[in-house]
Design a protein around this nucleic acid. Structure first.
Length: 280
DNA sequence: ACCTAAACCTGGGCGC
DNA sequence: TGCGCCCAGGTTTAGG
């Protein structure tokens, strides 16, 4: 679900479809998700999209920005004359608007942007652009893959912590963007037991894990993200990574590498999947 | 500094 | 059929 590759997929879609549009009207159906004054959006044009960790920022040409976190089940879906015949995922989106549609942005040129969120965990905040980076969520974000997470920084984070390596790499303050699916798959690919104390990893293992994180995320971005839960792109289409995951959600199945049965247990309260044979 | 659990929600899957 | 329960996972908050 929405981890770095999924949010990146949304970002790419918003850059392609939303940027350049003017927001004409905002209908907030569920106020709890929406902070700030929707009036600060009306009449403004979207000029750019940023992603910080699993968060999104839509910058406007009037000095305001809209910060968005889609959490587990949020969807941003764009429709206009050209895209209205694109087949949305019936199962995950259905008719628009649906009873999971909580905010509707009416755009110029006959376009609409829907914010859907089945479980209502996500948030949208409207605030002056210069204040966005002051939000604790963005301010506390650790270095990220494809951005500023160099091998050197990664080594420092891993080697200076006594925490189990999986919860550590999922800690957004330590490293931005990694969630449960990619943490599981990267550790599997690197052959490392998720319960290992991070500082016990050898230099070689840290490098392996670093490459594995990039590997699984790059692959997922190519597949348009993972649609295990409710994830779809801005046209309402599902991603494909869930059909290509390595170990996530595969308990009871055979490890493709050595045939061992994949085990599931909980670590830090999260479902954790390993091949007990080659993850040491 | 580190850990766990609960809270926020809803729908899908399962056992009975 | 249908009820009740568990589970899914991002983040925050509370407490040990």
């Amino acid at each position: 679900m929405p981890e770095l590759p999924e949010v990146e997929t949304v970002k790419i879609g918003l850059q392609k479809y939303l940027v350049g549009h003017k927001i004409l009207d905002v209908e907030v159906k569920v106020p709890k998700l929406f902070q700030g004054d929707p009036k600060n959006l009306t009449g403004a044009k979207a000029t750019g999209i940023r992603r910080v960790g699993k968060g999104l920022i839509i910058d406007l040409n009037n000095g305001y920005s809209m910060a968005i976190h889609i959490k587990l089940t949020g969807q941003l879906i764009y429709r206009d004359e050209k895209t209205k015949n694109v087949q949305v995922s019936k199962e995950k989106v259905g008719q628009l608007p649906s009873n999971a549609t909580h905010v509707i942005f009416t755009l110029d040129k006959g376009a609409i942007l829907y914010y859907n969120d089945r479980r209502r965990f996500g948030w949208i905040k409207v605030l002056p652009t210069e204040e966005v980076s002051e939000l604790p969520f963005f301010k506390g974000m650790g270095p990220e893959p494809f951005k500023d997470l160099t091998l050197e920084k990664f080594k420092k984070v891993i080697s200076s912590s006594n925490t189990a390596v999986k919860p550590l790499i999922m800690d957004q303050k330590k490293i931005g963007g990694i969630g449960n699916i990619y943490a599981n798959d990267a550790l599997f690919l690197a052959g490392i037991d998720p319960r290992r104390k991070a500082k016990t990893l050898t230099e070689e293992e840290i490098e392996k894990l670093y490459k594995a994180v990039y590997n699984v995320m790059e692959k997922s971005i190519r597949f348009g993200g993972a649609s295990e839960l409710n994830f779809v792109n801005v046209l309402g289409q599902e991603g494909e990574y869930q059909n290509h995951s390595l170990v996530y959600g595969k308990q009871g199945q055979k490890c493709p590498k050595d045939g061992e049965t994949i085990k599931k247990f909980f670590l830090g309260g999260r479902g954790t999947y390993i091949c007990p044979k080659h993850q040491k």
